[in-house]
Amino acid sequence: MKINYISILVLLIISLSSCSSDDDAISTDLTAASPGELAITFDNQVGDTDFVLNQEFTINSQTVTLNQLRYWVSNVSLINDQGEVIVIDDSYFLIEETDAISIQDGAYEYPATKRETITLSGVPAGNYTGISYAIGIDSKYNDNLSLQAGELSQLNGMTNISWMWHTSYIFTAIKGKIVNSESVLKLETGLNDSYRELTLNFDQALVVNASDTSDLLIKADITGMLQGVDFTETPVIGASTPEAMNLMADNFQNATFSLEKATDENL
C-alpha cells in the first residue's frame, strides 16, 4: 500500500514538477521510517598487505613506490532483500591516499590526505544484500564541470582543467615511481569511455537500522588495478594511451574490489 502511495506521489510531483524534484518527495517518505547509518570503507591493499604511501611494493614484478592513489566512487546504490534498489543521490566520493599535491602546475597545494571511508546517513532501515557503484564520473557531470554534486570539485586536482585540451574529470590516479630506474609512474583514467559500474553481493544480508552504524569493508587491491599494465611500456597512462587506459578501467571494474565484511556489529 505504501509503495502505491509513493508512486502516486511521484506521478503527482512529476506532473507538477515546477517545484522541488521528485527525489525529495520519495526520500522524505523513506526516511520517515527510522533510517540508519552505513559506513563504507575502501581498504586499499597490495595483494594482502595494507597499502602504505612511499613504501616499496612489488607489483607486476617491479619494485615500485606510490605517493598518490585516488579514485572517484560514484552513483552508489544499495540493494535490499526485497529486490529494491535504493539510489544514493549526489553520491560522488573521492577515495584517496596521497602526499601533498601541487595543483595547476604549482599554483597551490592540496594537502596530504588519507580518506578511505564514506558514511551514508539516512539509509532506510532494511536488510541489504548488495551494493552497486561506479568508478569515475558519469558523462552528465564529466561533460560539464560547472554542475555541482556531492564531492565533485574543480579544486582538488582530479580534473584535467590545467591540461588545455580536455576539460573533464580524472577518474583514477595512481602515481609514484619504479624504484630501480627512478622512472616516474603516472597512471590515470578519465574520459567517458573509462566509466565503469560494478556490483558486490553480500553473503549475508546486512542489517541497517537506527540503533547502530552498519559497516561495509571493501578491499581495493592495487595489484588488481594494475593487472597486466606494463610499467616499462606505458609508465604514463592517459588519454593518448587509450588501450592501457581501457585496461585499467576494466581492472577497476573486474579485478579490484571484493567484499571483506558486511556487519552491523562494530568493526
Binding site: D24, L30, T31, E84, I86, V87, D89, G122
Partner: peptide
Amino acid sequence: MKIYRLSFLIL
C-alpha cells in the same frame, strides 16, 4: 524492481 532515490539534502 523498485527503485528509490535517496537524497541527503532533504532538510
